[in-house]
């Protein structure tokens, strides 16, 4: 099959099998920042934003999301122009092996877009679709709190 998608703001036409999952299509086309973890919608490593909402790309048939807006972690920020959230994760030491990090960044981005001042409980809710086997979550939650503060500060200074 062939289909068109808006990926990180750019229109892309991709080829994929009819029963292919989105995580595979994205990775086959160079979007390897989307990690293929459990393939069962448990770990969140493959998380992307689909029309601005966080979803597991391993739980989506590629064919079903043609013409939709897809944003990967690199659409949020990259090595050369990191987003506040990405900087906050580095500064808080919230990254160890790093495999889960793209998913956590995407989940955090979706949360802070909707709710720039989340409570700890709301943070936990927002990342309940992401697993990290290294950090124990404490530093991740610290990073999200710090990112929220930085975003609020940045907005206040505008």
């Amino acid at each position: 099959m062939e289909g068109t998608f808006i990926i990180n703001g750019k229109e892309k036409t991709l080829n994929f099998n009819a029963d292919e999952r989105l995580v595979i299509t994205l990775r086959n086309n160079g979007y390897t920042e989307v990690k293929n973890g459990c393939s069962e919608g448990e770990c969140g490593a493959c998380m992307i934003l689909l029309d601005e909402k966080p979803v597991h790309s391993c739980q989506i048939f590629t064919a079903s999301v043609q013409n939709k807006n897809i944003q990967t972690v690199k659409g949020i920020g990259d090595l050369y122009l990191p987003h506040i959230i990405q900087n906050a994760f580095v500064e808080a030491g919230a990254v160890q092996c790093g495999f889960c990090t793209p998913g956590f960044i995407v989940a955090t981005y979706a949360l802070l877009n909707e709710n720039p001042n989340p409570t700890e409980e709301e943070i936990k809710q927002a990342i309940n679709g992401n697993l990290c086997r290294c950090t124990g979550y404490v530093k991740i939650i610290d990073a999200i709190k710090n990112a929220a503060k930085s975003i609020q500060k940045e907005r206040a200074s505008l």
Binding site: P54, V55, I127, N128, G129
Partner: peptide, 8 residues
């Protein structure tokens, strides 16, 4: 479920 699944 969880947040991403509830979105789907």
């Amino acid at each position: 479920a969880d947040t991403p699944l509830r979105n789907r």
